[in-house]
Design a binder for these strands. Structure first.
Lengths: 148, 148
DNA sequence: ATGAATGCAAATTATTTGCACATCA
DNA sequence: TGATGTGCAAATAATTTGCATTCAT
């Protein structure tokens, strides 16, 4: 029986998609989706595991992947390449990563394709996708002065 | 005594920079730099280790980092985030990564800053850097037909 | 009932670290 | 001779995989 306790909208959408696409709706998936939905700041897979101790690590990863594939979660690579996860709304977007506090803001693709046009023409590449991450300091951290 | 056997230009420049910046010039560093210089395709740290078996893995990593810091080598993150290394010429550039054959072409920053201007204004971010990776199929792989 | 989902432990991949020893300057 | 660099083995971090078991449908 589905515990119809109120789910975050993201978790709710996820459950719906599961049904629509013929995946199974399990309590585990509900728990993971709910934990992800509650997050505001980027988190590590390990932190998510800690939040759902009853769920095995491998399963957490499997569901992280599922959430990503469905567009409910995205993986952000910090400057050193270490991964963080964050719930997402926008289908295609990029990230403003604050190197000071770790906050990540989404921003929609201005028009990268335009910029890439000459590059593509010269290289003969057939572009399938791209990843753009911008690093810097967020407004809040700049406010807190001190260039640390 | 420095084995003055002909070094690749990249390795040579590296050695010079070492001297200039007061780092030590060791046979290990020469070997690693030479191995890196000989590469045309992106490689893994492990592959580099295999190419200089007499050098310890930790030291290979330490020198990879040094080469990166000095701008002679850059780290490319593939679509899944797995890292590859590649000798580099340009100070600041981005990558065209062929998902079919793994080739990586550099391209210089057209003018991303222009594109980011509105984003920066709205977010209040102080941009310090960015990473842009474009994924697709290179001309050669497209030529080999078959949409695999 | 039956195939998809899960849990666990072990295996991988990519690096880093501590520390004793070697070596360039 | 010293600080810097190196080797090795163990430690970390982030996932993945095999396989037996459970559970949604």
């Amino acid at each position: 029986m589905a515990t119809t306790s109120s789910l975050h909208p993201l978790a709710d959408s996820f459950i719906n998609r599961l049904e629509v696409e013929g995946h199974r709706v399990t309590s585990t998936r509900r728990a993971v989706a709910q934990a992800v939905s509650g997050r505001t700041a980027p988190f590590t897979a390990e932190e998510l595991c800690d939040e759902v101790p009853r769920v095995g690590r491998a399963t957490v990863y499997r569901n992280i992947k599922l959430l990503q594939d469905m567009g409910f979660l995205c993986r952000v690579l910090l400057e050193d390449g270490s991964p963080r996860y964050q719930p997402s709304q926008h289908a295609h977007h990029h990230h403003l990563v604050c190197v000071s506090c770790g906050e990540v803001q989404d921003f929609v693709d201005c028009d990268l394709s335009e910029l890439l046009r000459p590059v593509v023409r010269e290289s003969g590449f057939e572009v399938a996708g791209h990843r753009l991450e911008v690093f810097g300091r967020c407004a809040r951290c700049r406010g807190r002065a001190s260039p640390n």
